[in-house]
Design a protein around this nucleic acid. Structure first.
Lengths: 107, 107
DNA sequence: GCGCCATGCTACAAATAATGTAGCTTACAT
DNA sequence: ATGTAAGCTACATTATTTGTAGCATGGCGC
């Protein structure tokens, strides 16, 4: 139990003391942005979230969720289901414009 | 001879046809956000960029730069130095508010 | 021309992280 | 008690990153 534990995972760049670096690092991990995105309009159960995230492996999802929880962006509501904290909602707002940008970008 | 080559790297989530997914995946790769961030106020030579990115390995940097270039966010100016394209600058703008958020977030 | 640097970029082994599949445990309802 | 669904862990395989070294090209001064 708890083998893959915490590992002190001190977000890269946090040493610099510049919060933005820590944030960029945290969000620059696989599925992190996607998770926040999928939770944008309401909580999801871990299983539903997995579904929304194109069946990403539960291992990473769990890891990301833990990190995002420690960062205070996500919480596991009593009664089950992951949802954004008020802070997490704020964060989500800040990159909501990405949606419009992406549409414009197309490719 | 191009072993780590291109690999058609079709951005995860692009199959869904939803550009936002492709974008979230692209930006959710190590150093991608950081690179855009570091280029925010002017071009940098590959070496300077490496310096700015806490000495990230040239391998990933090169990989990310290639991807970001293919996405049209970054370009290698003639005379050297990587810089944001107009599109890239737009993208950068959209998550500039993250800076303020990060400061507020602190931790 | 020749040496001297800086640039963009590649090689490659070692270390980390992610994927995919299985399955455990707890809680709750039937 | 049986059936489900939840959150979460194991673990072997595969992919990505790191770290260090180094190559090729293009100035620039001499």
């Amino acid at each position: 139990m708890a083998k893959q534990a915490v590992k002190t995972h001190s977000v890269r760049g946090s040493r610099t003391g510049r919060p933005i670096m820590a944030l960029l690092d945290l969000l620059g991990r696989r599925w992190a942005l996607r998770i926040l995105w999928e939770l944008r309009d309401g909580p999801l159960t871990s299983r539903a979230l997995r579904g929304a995230c194109d069946e990403a492996s539960p291992t990473v999802l769990q890891a990301r969720l833990t990190e995002l929880r420690e960062a205070g962006f996500v919480e596991l509501g009593d009664g089950g289901g992951y949802g954004l904290t008020p802070l997490g909602r704020d964060l989500c707002e800040t990159f909501m414009p990405l949606h419009r940008f992406a549409e414009r970008w197309k490719r």
